[in-house]
Write a protein that binds this DNA or RNA. Structure first.
Length: 418
RNA sequence: GAGCUCGUAGCUCAGUCGGUUAGAGCGCUAGGUUGUGGCCCUAGAGGCCGUGGGUUCAAUUCCCAUCGGGCUCCCCA
């Protein structure tokens, strides 16, 4: 196929009419469940200051070091948001949202941007939904957050997932652990994969995540962070797990789970799906007790997660889950002649005012073509309007599924369909 | 950012061991039924064979590059 002159950018896809109903259905589910959990929606701009993202997400993360879309205009440094925790924290601080009282339970959804090489389940413009609970360090908040996340997948019917959870402690215990990890690995440094050697100084935790075969033996016997948690973090983690048990949410503790953003403290979790291929994370999140201060606000412990909406869609397809109904319209006005078209135009309005969906042919086509079109649009009924009908004030109402017809006045038709 | 792989009608794909007018199914439009859809029949529209360059008498076919998709790594949602 010859490519058109103008196409969307690589990794940025259109959501066409055949797909958009699925998206709306998913969005509706998220709104409904958020309402049940008493989460309030927050919408922030698509662009943020580059410095916010660099500080918030972390200079050394892949997201910031190689995946952000950034540009300058005048003195301003713009970046397309790669995630929404930092922007939500920014809004929280900017608008002194702690003054609203209590803890803030926020949710969001929308497009994010990362300049990665696209593959299935990974695009440059993609969509996430997620929540942030700000102002509480109670393990209950962690678990409510996870419960909401799980609830979305459960409601949709995606039950084939694995919740992995870990605690990466506070910065002090993490530093102690990093050092212990380095001490453990150092004698075998030369035997580590090239990649892991690079990670050794900068981010040794990542070595635990390595998929390189030569690293696996070292990883298996490495010290685990759980042994380095201070009492507070350990108690916190135990409570999180106990509350998960209370909710009968099954999980796997994974001492090797570390996350890509620098801001995480204590609880970290991921939701993995076997139905996704190599990009198998449905959602991920954790606690970030120090980020609000980092951004310039008051000490505000917080926890949240983000979930990939495209990945959720892919899982639905793999599992043959239909998010949206077939398209349909209540009434299709089939017109024969100019007088009928004019009548139809005004009575379309009346039909819609009665709460029904209604449409007609705009192309002046034959009756057969109109009937075919009505079929394609999945019309429940057609109303056939010709000179005879206009004269008598009785129209042919055809039930498309049953192939039954009746002669009725317009008022009777509306009454019957309502 | 790296490796592999694919790229022919709107969609799914044949095909050309380089050689006159590139095919099918579905979809679309129209007719068969001058006022009736879904099935059937007929016809039509729709392709510089992703793009650019090279080799050649000749390239959709071979070579290179590029763009785009897929898979994998990295990383993440």
């Amino acid at each position: 196929m010859a490519k058109p002159k103008y196409t969307s950018h690589i990794g940025m896809v259109d959501i066409l009419p055949d797909e958009s109903p699925k998206w709306r259905a998913l969005e509706n589910i998220i709104h409904e469940e958020a309402k049940k959990f008493n989460f309030e929606e927050i919408r922030t701009p698509i662009m943020e200051q580059t410095e916010l993202i660099v500080r918030g997400v972390g200079q050394l993360t892949d997201i910031v070091s190689k995946e952000i879309f950034a540009f300058e205009k005048g003195d301003s440094h713009y970046v397309l948001r790669p995630e929404l925790t930092a922007p939500v924290v920014r809004a929280f601080v900017e608008h002194h949202m702690e003054q609203r009282g209590g803890s803030q339970k926020l949710y969001y959804m929308g497009p994010m941007f990362r300049a990665e090489r696209p593959q299935k389940g990974r695009q440059r413009q993609f969509h996430q939904f997620g929540v942030e609970i700000m102002g509480s360090d109670d393990p209950i908040a962690d678990v409510e957050c996870i419960a909401f996340m799980i609830r979305i997948y459960e409601r949709i019917g995606i039950k084939n997932y694995n919740l992995k959870i870990n605690s990466i402690g506070d910065p002090e215990s993490r530093e102690a652990y990093k050092q212990a990890l380095r001490d453990y690995l150092k004698p075998n440094f030369d035997k580590l994969s090239e990649l892991s050697q690079k990670r050794f100084e900068k981010n040794p935790l990542r070595i635990l995540d390595s998929k390189e075969p030569e690293d696996q033996d070292f990883i298996k016997n490495a010290p685990v962070i759980n042994d380095f948690l201070n009492q507070e973090s350990e108690d916190h983690f135990k409570k999180v797990l106990a509350y998960l048990d209370e909710l009968d949410i099954s999980y796997t503790t994974d001492p090797h789970l570390v996350r890509g953003m620098d801001y995480y403290t204590r609880t970290a979790f991921e939701l993995i799906s076997p139905d996704l291929g190599s990009q198998d994370a449905l959602a991920g999140g954790g606690r970030y007790d120090l980020l609000v201060e980092e951004i310039g606000g008051p000490y505000t412990p917080a926890v949240g997660f983000a979930a990939g909406m495209e990945r959720l869609m892919i899982a639905c397809e793999e599992l043959d889950i239909k998010l949206a109904d077939e398209k349909s319209v209540d009434v299709y006005f089939v017109t024969l002649g100019e007088a009928a078209r004019k009548w139809a135009l005004s009575h379309l309005s009346k039909t819609r005012e009665a709460g029904l969906s209604a449409t007609m042919d705009y192309l002046g086509r034959s009756m057969k073509a109109q009937m075919k079109d009505a079929n394609r649009e999945n019309a429940r009924y057609t109303i056939i309007i010709g000179d005879n009908e206009l004269e008598q004030g009785k129209f042919t109402l055809r039930n498309m599924k049953e192939s039954e017809e009746a002669q009725l006045s317009f008022d009777e038709i509306v009454e019957r369909l309502r």
